[in-house]
Amino acid sequence: MYSFEVDKPGSVEAAVAALQIEEAMALGGGQTLIPTLKQRLASPSRLVSLAGIAEMKGVSAVDGVVTIGGGTPHATVAREAAGAYPALAALAGNIGDPAVRNRGTIGGSLANNDPAACYPSAALASGATIVTSSREIAADDYFQGMFTTALHEGEIVTAVRFPVPQAASYQKFEQPASRFALVGVFLARFAEGVRVAVTGASEDGVFRWSEAEEALNKEFRADALTGLAIAPENMIADLHGTKEYRAHLVSVMTKRAIRAVG
């Protein structure tokens, strides 16, 4: 790693101020950032740790909305959201491994927007609101492609508000080595309609499978997807799967999600 200092501000305001320094970077749980730093793929002058900001931690459920502080570790979400939003809790409880879940945070995951990360699919499928240090961003506007989001320099994800659907399921098919999603499908069924978000699959990062949503809004059963297919062109191809395989898995995982929510 290159040399840097670590700041540990106690408030969002102080963190935002600290991030004004040239080449400063926010440090969430560090589960992606620290391996990146070890490879010397980033050279921050200063890391601003968000771990000590109490206002960014915790899970609450009020009026059909689950709000998760941006600095909340996955393990806490898995535990504390289990009652209010079981599919989200299950997703959080299957990110990485237990030790990673004790450190990695939802804010860090959403800020990084890895194309194979789990959380972006939940945020997008739930129609979540990403609350930052300066504004609120609808999930539909937030994700802008692989590792790209609507966040500005120095902007911090302080909370995420998830409207709780009537029913939801996350189906993850793991990449055998990293255990990230080779394809992950989050399906959320609201009174207003069904939202299907897909992670792991696309070169454009997480996306909504709108054709599937339309079909399911007409008829909510796995058979409704018959004849629907994702075009392989924009899918990711790598060691672990071809474009065609990923496109196929999107269908399979979506059907499984439909069956899981009944």
Binding site: V6, Q31, A75, D97, N102, R103
Partner: peptide
């Protein structure tokens, strides 16, 4: 890459990968 777990210790009673956490934290 924070995968092998040979470095797992407990911080405040929770398992963490000590190679993926700074001492100052």
């Amino acid at each position: 890459t924070s995968q092998c777990g040979a470095c797992v210790v407990h911080v405040d009673g929770q398992a963490v990968k000590s190679c993926t956490m700074f001492a100052v934290e």
